[in-house]
């Protein structure tokens, strides 16, 4: 594999990155899980890490969050208090009696009004007193998002946020993320193995397969041979015409945070 990442449209962001990985490598079980990972997320940016299963996406997220020791390289990250993390899957033991409000404020004490506001923002305000064990997959992801929002993060980190969410819920959740970015101005770093919707909802894509093989705007990356080799030509066509459900095909390429989607576009699939 070409170890030199093929970078497209570098567009250097003048702002200081919120988090930056410099040549990071992580070892596990006597082999390299990922190597030579250099990436940065700037304020207000949505960056998506994509790659096939086993590419090391979750490893990169865990390294970024400081959850796994880094074997080489360096990471500049903000304080934990400025990061909101939505993990891939949280299997809560039903043996713990827990309400949604309690789960949302598990590490940070907050007045009920703020918990309610965070849940409202995530679209699950009605569930504040529900026991956690009755939540559906999509509701659970939104509750976890509310927990992250309650921290008023500068950086949201989401690891495969669409687990257990059906397609309609998925597009709604991506719309929600876009809205969160616009209203709060926080940066979003997210992981996905699913190209279909991701390409539409992101400013910058980073393709990972043990190493970073390419990165750039979704459209530019989709045309790269390295991307097509990794995901196939069909993936490229998906990326090039990502807006089968959105009416504005150019919205994803706007370098600045795009305006919220028109109501009609959302109701089209919601």
């Amino acid at each position: 594999m070409n170890s030199e990442p093929a970078s497209v449209s570098p567009t250097p962001n003048p702002a200081r990155p919120l988090v930056a990985l410099h040549g990071v490598g992580v070892q596990g079980g006597g082999r390299w899980l990922v190597r030579e990972i250099s990436l940065a997320v700037h304020p207000g940016e949505i960056v998506t890490l994509i790659g096939p299963n086993g590419a090391g996406k979750t490893t990169v997220v865990k390294a970024l969050l400081g959850l796994v020791p880094v074997s080489e390289g360096r990471i500049d990250r903000p304080q934990a208090s400025r990061i909101g993390y939505v993990p891939q899957r949280l299997t809560l033991d039903p043996v713990i009696p827990l309400s949604v409000a309690r789960l949302v404020s598990a590490t940070r004490r907050a007045p009920r009004a703020r918990i309610q506001a965070a849940l409202d923002e995530a679209g699950v305000g009605a569930l504040i007193d529900a026991p956690v064990r009755i939540l559906s997959g999509g509701e659970f992801q939104r509750v976890l998002l509310a927990r992250a929002l309650l921290r008023d993060p500068a950086l949201l980190v989401l690891d495969e946020p669409m687990q257990g969410v059906d397609f309609a819920g998925e597009t709604a959740l991506y719309d929600l993320l876009a809205r969160v970015r616009t209203t709060r101005g926080c940066a979003i770093f997210m992981v996905s193995h699913d190209l279909h919707v991701v390409m539409a909802a992101t400013d910058r894509v980073i393709c990972l397969n043990g190493r970073i093989c390419c990165s750039g705007s979704p459209r530019a990356v989709a045309e790269l041979p390295t991307f097509q080799a990794l995901f196939g030509a069909r993936a490229a066509s998906l990326a090039l015409y990502p807006h089968s459900h959105h009416k504005e095909p150019s919205a994803c390429d706007l370098p600045s945070p795009p305006a919220d989607l028109p109501e009609g576009a959302r109701s089209h699939h919601g």
């Binding site: 809560l92 827990l98 980190v157």
Partner: peptide
């Protein structure tokens, strides 16, 4: 209590949130 409970719910998430 709060930290122990958060760790019990999900250690990774708790650690990422500074516990």
């Amino acid at each position: 209590w709060r930290g122990l409970l958060a760790t019990t719910l999900d250690p990774d998430l708790a650690q990422a949130e500074g516990v």
